[in-house]
Design a protein around this nucleic acid. Structure first.
Ligand SMILES: [Mn+2]
Ligand SMILES: [Mn+2]
Ligand SMILES: [Zn+2]
Ligand SMILES: [Zn+2]
Lengths: 144, 144
DNA sequence: ACCAAAATTGCAACAAAGTTGCAATAAATG
DNA sequence: CATTTATTGCAACTTTGTTGCAATTTTGGT
């Protein structure tokens, strides 16, 4: 695998030890265009006896190191995804949209087009906004 | 209770039978400025031997009848809330923001100020947007 | 190539949130 | 007040995620 060497470098850059679990999970996440649940990932790693607890911990480590973020899905569990990449191929760590397909339930991370026109809630009520998540519902390209 | 008569009428208007459970749950939801978890609601009804399954079913009924909506919380369980009311005291059934306090974890339903300027994701990619949820993170009025 | 320290992993047991089937109970209608 | 129909409570179960601990693996230095 030629990719493994890249992942190896990448993990070291993040200050993480390189383990087969981490290389495996990184590859699964890299290969997906949508956010994946713990169960999805475990399913895609059958054959490599990866324990569910280890996977939870690996994902958590990735989150703590800013490699991955998680999104609450509509059916009350977490989906994990790498940070999305915008048109200039640069990683978007901050605000981006989550598109939830009402047909297949897949969740996509999409960079936002109009960065400047964010709707704000009624302002005088004393809510201090620090970050936001924009969730879009509809039909994804795969489903029409 | 003078409120009970109003709730009674309201439930009948929705085509629902009036039961003590429904009156109770409706009152709890009406009395809260934030979205409540199943556990929160159960906690506020101690004394009235309300079963957890009955509460789940009652909330589900309210959702199916458009009385209540649910929001995925940061700790992966559902929060339930009546639809918010805007400045003109009219019920907002569609888009509104969810403000999540990073300090107390409470979730508030807030009507949006600028209805017209919604950020859209990259358009040509074939995503058909039908609805959206705007989630704001920050500090709520109670916490500063 | 080998060693020691520190981090990672697998296993078992556990906890919390939510669901299902079914019998008992309560609400609405005439 | 009797009948029909929806609602409720209970027990058992599923799914998702967590905790403690011992065994294994990684890494940096010899
Ligand atoms: Mn995302
Ligand atoms: Mn809401
Ligand atoms: Zn789809
Ligand atoms: Zn707060």
């Amino acid at each position: 695998m030629i990719r493994n060497e890249q992942y190896h470098q990448f993990l070291r850059q993040c200050g993480l030890k390189v383990t087969s679990t981490r290389l495996l999970v990184l590859d699964v996440l890299m290969s997906s265009s949508t956010a994946l649940s713990h169960g999805d990932i475990l399913g895609k790693t059958r054959g490599s006896r990866l324990d569910k607890v280890t996977l939870y911990r690996t994902l958590d480590t990735f989150i703590r190191h800013g490699i991955v973020h998680k999104v609450a899905s509509e059916d009350r569990n977490w989906l994990y995804a790498l940070h999305p990449i915008d048109r200039n191929n640069s990683v978007v760590r901050g605000d981006h949209a989550h598109f939830i397909c009402d047909h297949c339930e897949r969740i996509y991370c999409l960079p936002l087009q109009t960065r400047n026109s964010m709707p704000a809630p009624e302002s005088e009520e004393g809510f201090i906004v620090r970050a936001h998540e924009f969730r879009l519902h509809g039909i994804c390209p795969q489903c029409h």
